[in-house]
Nucleic acid binder design. Structure first.
Length: 781
DNA sequence: TGCACTCATATTTTT
DNA sequence: TATGAGTGCA
């Protein structure tokens, strides 16, 4: 292996010698971080709370290993989950060492390292080393074919479902022959059979899916001692990021590799485990000390990110979870702002308020420093919540960016283009052929495609060959035959270009133009066509960074992400999941309502386990904030087209009251305020725009709350309960609700009223959203 | 092949 | 509500 030549080969130092010769990187680390860096031998579990500098510790540890000569770059296996994390790690290690880390071939994501290993040993599980990696789309198409072939109704049993079942098995490192009896009922008792068929099909296609990249490697390790032993010797030091997110397959993979030297350092935070639904096993991190006897557990608890109030709020929420490893975050930062809590009438108003708040904060009119849009983020539980914000921000012209969403390489045009590239390289790529045979439209519809399939199957050849034979046998006539011949000629021509090692950018352009694909989008008059052409250009541009098409395809299926860098200042909108690992000075957390967050589905399907994961999500959300966090909820929300009354999230109850300040929103009126004309909220809104919290409306609302003795209630949420509202109602009373109309109170429970509405039926509603019927009579509606 | 229509469906998604 | 997938018709 020549790739490490540029790295000086140093004589490993003993621990003793190391102690005597402190590494220069240790400055600026706190005691536990230092310990995590210096405890090189034996298993180490670094429990790193949010914002405690775990990446710093991890990268310094690598730099330390290398610079002291304890390990050579190729002896260190460092795995992350995301490409972004891998890049970041590379960059920071390089920064610490003052040189590029070209010589670290085993720093990467689980999947990229898995792919690398699998290419080296593919033949051991019946693949060729140039196997293709299927994306989700290919996978689903394949599964659909298998479902239909098995004469199962794909409507009742959609491929999506099967893919989940199979992914779940793969996450648990279960090959078809190892599926436990308890799972045999999966997918209408046909799951195991279809799984086996799928794996067989993948092998004939010389392909594997994401899960296989790990599963196959585990299988190889389990069945080939010599191969395993080689890597066990090789990887003297293993580092794992985000250990709480590992699934069983990844866990086995790591454990097998670590058996020889046992120098495995896992970094994670059980409180930030939010991917349980995807097969992540919190149990892996909870069990670490059992798995690796003699493990040193190091806790990083000093938080460098958030103010004490934010930390207190986050800690108080997460404290409600059971079975934690337990950490107590602390900070030396100054107090700062309290977490603010605000309730709104509905989702639309919530979005409006946040929009205004963002604008105000830009100008520094909230008694804080001015914040740039880049410093603010809105974190939602589910992506459909984004819409309200997008709508609002578009109307007021507030620039925003949505993080996450479909990735670049998942877009239709990119995949079509890539399918063409794949075909240019290999005519055996049936999946690619299926994808593009009639894209753009060539008059090769279902019937023509079936004929090609038949021809291929009966002759035992690939689809491309099958098509060739079909044409030769005159099995296809007319326009279709002509077009198919043109396509096949094109394929031959492109294949020659690849073989002759023509510059791959030229090839790409010839393929896209020659196939008529570019033209297809040029002729398309839909609004997104221009963007698609733009993306295709982008794709060709990206080719520049690679030696050849093959290298590009490998990369694109594993590594290409969607980082559109634009310099413009924008507010970020993303899901809580997407926010993990990020931080923002200001964070808005809307939609804290029971059923939405925590999500009803998580609780229904996973019970307490699900609820606890939701709670960790709340913890992740709050700990993203550096200086300022705002939690909000709405009393009414439009869910699938009908209005739903929402209860504030139970997580709001769990917030440390001392860390929270309650704001009263415009448009919220209970009890005494109910009699006030609607104009109150208009006044407040105008004033808020002008003067922020110094507005007369704001002050009036504040003082009114104070008069009611609401400044120091026991629980945060209780602060929102209008005492007069509670006493104002009694069972049997006729009330009015803006969205549900008139109804009668059937029961009262704290601030919650059970109301039987005349039109909307039975609802549970927070008292402050309801008025006595006679008080409502003068409200225009 | 393209359209207009019905119908079911509706979290989170590192690779 | 709004999106997509599937279906029927020109």
């Amino acid at each position: 292996m020549s790739e490490f030549e540029d790295f000086p080969d140093r004589i490993p130092l003993s621990q003793q010698a190391l102690a005597a010769r402190p590494s220069p990187y240790l400055d600026g680390l706190n005691a536990p971080q230092r310990e995590a860096v210096e405890t090189l031998d034996g298993p180490v579990l670094m429990l790193a709370g949010a914002g405690t500098g775990k990446t710093k510790a991890l990268t310094t540890r690598i730099a330390h290993l290398l610079s002291t000569g304890t390990a050579r770059p190729n002896e260190v296996l460092a795995v992350t989950f995301t490409n972004k994390a891998a890049r970041e790690m590379k960059k920071r290690v390089a920064g610490l060492l003052g040189q590029a880390v070209e010589g670290m071939p085993w720093l990467g994501t689980f999947h990229s390292i898995g792919a690398k290993l699998l290419r080296l040993h593919a033949e051991l599980i019946g693949l060729k080393s140039n196997f293709t990696i299927l994306d989700t789309d290919d996978q689903l198409r394949l599964l659909k074919q298998l479902i239909v072939a098995a004469e199962i109704d794909p409507k009742r049993w959609p491929e999506r479902h099967l893919s989940n079942v199979i992914d779940d098995w793969k996450n648990r490192a279960l090959t078809p022959d190892k599926i436990p009896v308890a799972d045999h009922g999966a997918f209408n008792h046909r799951g195991v059979e279809l799984y086996a068929a799928y794996q067989a099909r993948l092998k004939t296609l010389n392909a594997c899916d994401f899960g296989d990249l790990l599963l196959h490697v585990v299988t190889i390790f389990q069945t080939h001692d010599d191969v395993l032993a080689q890597y066990q010797r090789w990887f003297r030091y293993i580092l794992v990021d985000e250990y709480q997110d590992t699934n069983v397959a990844q866990y086995l993979w790591l454990r097998l590799l670590a058996q020889q030297h046992k120098n495995i350092c896992c970094v994670g935070d059980d409180d930030q485990s939010i991917y349980g639904w995807r097969g992540a096993e919190v149990g892996n991190i909870l069990r670490f000390e059992k798995d690796f006897p003699g493990a040193r557990v190091i806790r990083l608890e000093q938080n460098y990110r958030s103010t004490p109030h934010i930390l207190a709020a986050a800690s108080s929420v997460i404290a409600a979870n059971k079975g934690r490893l337990g950490k107590t975050l602390f900070t030396e930062a100054a107090d700062g702002e309290k977490v603010r809590l605000i309730g709104h009438w509905d989702g639309e108003e919530e979005a409006r308020w946040i929009g205004e708040e963002i604008e105000a904060m830009q100008g520094g009119t909230r008694g804080m420093r001015p914040f740039s849009l880049d410093e603010m983020a809105i974190l939602v539980r589910a992506s459909h919540q984004m819409r309200a914000f997008e709508d609002r921000f578009l109307t007021i012209g507030l620039p925003y960016r949505v993080i996450g969403g479909p990735r670049f390489y998942e877009r239709m045009e990119i995949r079509d283009a890539m399918a063409y590239f794949r075909l240019a390289i290999s005519h055996d790529d049936d999946l690619a052929f299926e994808r593009v045979v009639n894209t753009p439209k060539r008059g090769l519809g279902d019937k023509a495609q079936q004929k090609i399939q038949m021809s291929a199957r009966s002759n035992g050849v690939s689809l491309v060959e099958g098509a060739r034979l079909l044409l030769a046998a005159k099995g296809l006539t007319g326009k279709g035959a002509l077009e198919l011949q043109k396509l096949l000629d094109g394929l031959d021509q492109w294949h020659r270009l690849v073989r002759d090692q023509v510059d791959h950018i030229d090839i790409a352009e010839q393929v896209l133009d020659g196939s008529g694909y570019t033209e297809h989008w040029q002729n398309t008059k839909t609004p997104e066509a221009a963007g698609r052409l733009e993306n295709l250009k982008e794709l060709v541009k990206a080719l520049d960074n690679f030696e050849n098409l093959q290298g590009f395809l490998e990369h694109v299926s594993l590594v290409m992400d969607n980082e559109t860098e634009d310099a413009d200042e924008k507010v970020s909108i993303m899901t809580l999941h997407a926010a993990k690992g990020l931080e923002f000075p200001t964070v808005f957390l809307p939609g804290w309502e029971d059923g939405l967050f925590p999500s009803q589905r998580a609780m229904d399907e996973q019970g307490v386990k699900g609820l606890e994961e939701e709670r960790r999500l709340a913890y992740v959300g709050l700990t993203r904030a550096e200086e300022y966090a705002v939690v909000s909820f709405a009393g009414n929300r439009l869910v699938y087209g009908s209005w739903q009354s929402q209860m504030p999230s139970r997580f709001i109850d769990e917030l440390d009251q001392d860390a929270v300040e309650v704001l009263t929103a415009p448009g919220l009126y209970g009890g005494g305020a109910a009699a006030e004309p609607q104009v109150t909220s208009d006044l407040y809104e105008k004033a808020a725009r002008a003067d922020g919290y110094n507005s007369p409306g704001w002050k009036r609302l504040q003082s009114r709350n104070q008069q009611r003795g609401l400044s120091q209630p026991r629980e945060a949420r209780n602060m929102l309960i209008d005492a007069s509202a509670i006493s104002a109602f009694s069972t049997g009373e006729r009330v009015f609700h803006d969205k549900f109309g008139y109804g009668t109170i059937t029961a009262i429970e704290g601030d919650k009223l059970d109301i039987s509405f005349e039109k909307a039926g039975f609802k549970k509603v927070v008292a402050k959203f309801v008025k006595l019927a006679e008080a409502a009579d003068d409200v225009p509606f």
